[in-house]
C-alpha cells in the first residue's frame, strides 16, 4: 500500500457512499449524462425524478455495472467503480474489480427479471449459495425470512408466473436483499404494475426505508410516495441535476421553471 491508498482509506468513513464526478454517458450521439456531479451519503434515501430520457435509470444502471461510462469517475464507498488504481493512476476496471464492487449493490428492476424456471425460494438462494458461498440450508432459512418480510412466505415453492406482478416485484426486492447490499437501487419498481398492485410494493420499500444503514436510490413516478420516504429529491433534466433538495421544498416550492413544469405535468395530469 502506498501513501495515496492510505489517505483514501482514511477518508472513507466520512466520504459519500456514492459519488459521480463529472460523469459522461453517451449512447451514440445522444448524451445521456452530461458531466454529472452527484453524491449520496451513507444511509441516505434519495429519489430521482425527471422526464423520460433524462438519465435517471442510467444512473442506477451505471452503479449496478450494467452500463459503462464514457468519461468521469464514479466512486462507491470511496473506491472508483469503473476504474481501478494502478499506482496513482486510474485505469479502466477489470472484471474482478467490478465483481467486488458489484457486491455492494442490489437492484430491483422495472420488469422484475425473476428467473422464471426457478421457484420463488430458489430465486432467493441461487446467488447467496453460488456467489457468497452460504450453505444451502442457511440460504433457505435466510430466504424464508426475507419472504416473510415481504409477506410471501406461503409462496416459496411457486414459480414466478404463478404470482401477481406485485408479488413478483416483492420477490425481486427480497432477492436483491438476499445478497446483503449496502446500496439498494430501485429502477421504476412499480411502473410495470397494475395500479391496484402498486401499494403492496411501495409498502415493502417503505419498510426498508426505515432501515438506518441501508442506502437507497429510487427512480420512480410515484411522487407522493417519493415525498414520504425520501431524504432528498433530485430532479434530473437533460443528463444533469437541475434541482435538488428536501422533498417538501421540491414539491411545494420548486425554484426552477423546468421542475415546476414537470411536477405540474405529473401531479395534475388533467390540466
Amino acid at each position: 500500500m502506498n501513501d495515496a491508498t492510505e489517505i483514501r482509506d482514511a477518508g472513507e468513513m466520512s466520504d459519500p457512499i456514492i459519488k459521480f464526478d463529472k460523469v459522461v454517458k453517451r449512447f451514440g450521439d445522444h448524451v445521456v449524462l452530461d458531466e454529472l456531479d452527484f453524491e449520496v451519503q451513507r444511509g441516505e434515501k434519495v429519489t430521482i425524478i425527471g422526464p423520460s430520457g433524462s438519465g435517471k435509470s442510467t444512473v442506477l444502471r451505471i452503479l449496478m455495472t450494467l452500463e459503462p461510462i464514457n468519461d468521469g469517475v464514479v466512486y462507491v464507498g470511496g473506491q472508483p467503480l469503473w476504474h481501478q488504481w494502478r499506482g496513482d493512476e486510474l485505469i479502466p476496471a477489470g472484471e474482478p474489480h467490478l465483481r467486488e464492487m458489484r457486491s455492494h449493490m442490489g437492484m430491483v428492476f422495472q420488469q422484475f427479471n425473476l428467473f422464471p424456471h426457478m421457484t420463488v425460494l430458489r430465486n432467493l438462494t441461487e446467488a447467496p449459495v453460488q456467489v457468497l458461498g452460504i450453505n444451502k440450508a442457511e440460504a433457505k432459512k435466510r430466504g424464508m425470512e426475507l419472504l416473510e418480510m415481504v409477506g410471501l412466505a406461503d409462496q416459496a415453492s411457486k414459480y414466478p408466473h404463478q404470482l401477481s406482478g406485485g408479488q413478483q416485484q416483492r420477490v425481486g426486492i427480497a432477492r436483491a436483499l438476499a445478497m446483503r447490499p449496502k446500496v439498494m437501487l430501485f429502477d421504476e419498481p412499480t411502473s410495470a404494475l397494475d395500479p391496484e398492485l402498486v401499494g403492496e410494493v411501495l409498502n415493502v420499500i417503505r419498510s426498508l426505508a426505515d432501515e438506518h444503514d441501508l442506502t437507497m436510490l429510487l427512480v420512480t413516478h410515484e411522487m407522493h410516495f417519493a415525498r414520504q420516504v425520501s431524504d432528498r429529491i433530485c430532479f434530473f433534466d437533460q443528463g444533469r441535476i437541475k434541482e435538488q433538495g428536501k422533498p417538501e421544498d421540491i414539491f411545494t416550492a420548486p425554484k426552477e421553471e423546468r421542475t415546476k413544469a414537470f411536477l405540474k405535468a405529473v401531479l395534475d395530469p388533467d390540466d
Binding site: 449493490m105 446467488a127 456467489v131 432477492r175 445478497m179
Partner: peptide, 14 residues
C-alpha cells in the same frame, strides 16, 4: 430476455 442476464450480473453470478 436481456433482463435475465442483467439480473444474473446484478446478483454477481459468474
Amino acid at each position: 430476455a436481456s433482463g435475465q442476464r442483467e439480473a444474473a450480473r446484478a446478483l454477481n453470478l459468474a
